[in-house]
Design a protein around this nucleic acid. Sequence first.
DNA 1: TATTTACCTACTATATTGGTAGGTATATTT
DNA 2: AAATATACCTACCAATATAGTAGGTAAATA
Lengths: 156, 156
Amino acid sequence: MGFMVSTKGRYALRVMLDLAEGGGEEYVPLKDISDRQEIPHKYMEAIMSRLTKEGLVDAAHGKGGGYRLSRPAETYTVGEILTATEGDMVPVACLEGGFDCPRADVCKTLPVWRRLDKMIGDYLDSVRLVDLMDDAERDPRSLGRILAEPSQRPSS
Amino acid sequence: MGFMVSTKGRYALRVMLDLAEGGGEEYVPLKDISDRQEIPHKYMEAIMSRLTKEGLVDAAHGKGGGYRLSRPAETYTVGEILTATEGDMVPVACLEGGFDCPRADVCKTLPVWRRLDKMIGDYLDSVRLVDLMDDAERDPRSLGRILAEPSQRPSS
DNA sequence: TATTTACCTACTATATTGGTAGGTATATTT
DNA sequence: AAATATACCTACCAATATAGTAGGTAAATA
C-alpha cells in the first residue's frame, strides 16, 4: 500500500500551522521551526521552496530573515497546502491528469474512484488551517467538535 | 504523491466484479477473466492468491477448475476487497498499525488524518460489490444514482 | 497419461520516499 | 568591509514499493 500524503505534505502542514500560531508579521527562521517541529532542517528546505514558489509563504534572506505566511491565516485550507507540496492528490492512478485509460468508458469501478476522490478533496478543502489551531477549541467549527460528532459532515 | 490504491486492489475489484457478474456456481479459469479484463495473467495469479487466502474466493485445481465467489455476491463490500489485497489502507504513515508516533499527543494535524481515514473507510465499506454491477442501474442505491446527486451520502 | 488449471519461488526495472552533503546568493549587523 | 545569518541550489544516496516477468511444481480431470 502507498500513502496518499507523504512527509512532504504532512511536514508542510505542520510548518504552516507553526507559522500561523506565531501569528506575527516578522519572519521566522526555518531553524526555529524545524527545531520546534522536530523535522530535519535540510529536508525542510526543499519543502519550503515549494511553498514559496506556490506563493503560500514569503521568504526573506539574511539576518532577521526567514518565512512568514503571505496571507491572513484564516484563508488557508488544508487541501491547498497539501496540493502545493504533494501535487495533485488522487487516490488511484486512473484519475491522474494526462492519463486516459482506454477502458475508462467500460470500467465499472471508475465511479468508485471518482466519488472517493471527490470526497477526499471536498473534505480537505473544507478544513481551514485555523481549525487546527489551539484556540480553535472554543470554535464550534473546530475539528475537536467535528470529530466528536462523526455523523455531521464538516462543511456543507 | 503516492496512490492509496495500487493495481493490486484495483485489479482485485475488477476480478471480483467479473466473478459476480458471471453469477454461477461454476469455477471460472483465471485465463478467461484476465483476457476479458485485459490484466496480465501471471500478475493476476499473485493477487488471486491473496483473495483465496483471505477466503473471499474459492479455488479449484485442474480441468474445470478456476475461481468463484465463496459467498453470495451481495455480501461483499469494496472496502473488504481492497483491504484483503492492499492490506490495511491508511492515507498517512502516522496511522499505520504498529507505528506509534512520539508526537501523537501534541500533534495538531493528527485529527485531520484520523477523520480522513474514517471517511475513506466508511465510504469504501458502504459500497457493495453489487452496486457496481450493470443491473444495479435500476437500483436506487446504485452508484450511478449516487454520483448524480453528490449531496447524498451513499449508505447512511 | 495428457491436459488443464492453480500455486510457488525467484528475479528485475523503474520510480518514489526521505533524507544527507556541500556549496552559493543575499541581506543584515558590526 | 567583514562577519554572520539566513534562504536557495545541485547532486547524491539507501531503502522500499510497484508492476510486473520467468519458469517451474502440484493437483485435479478427461
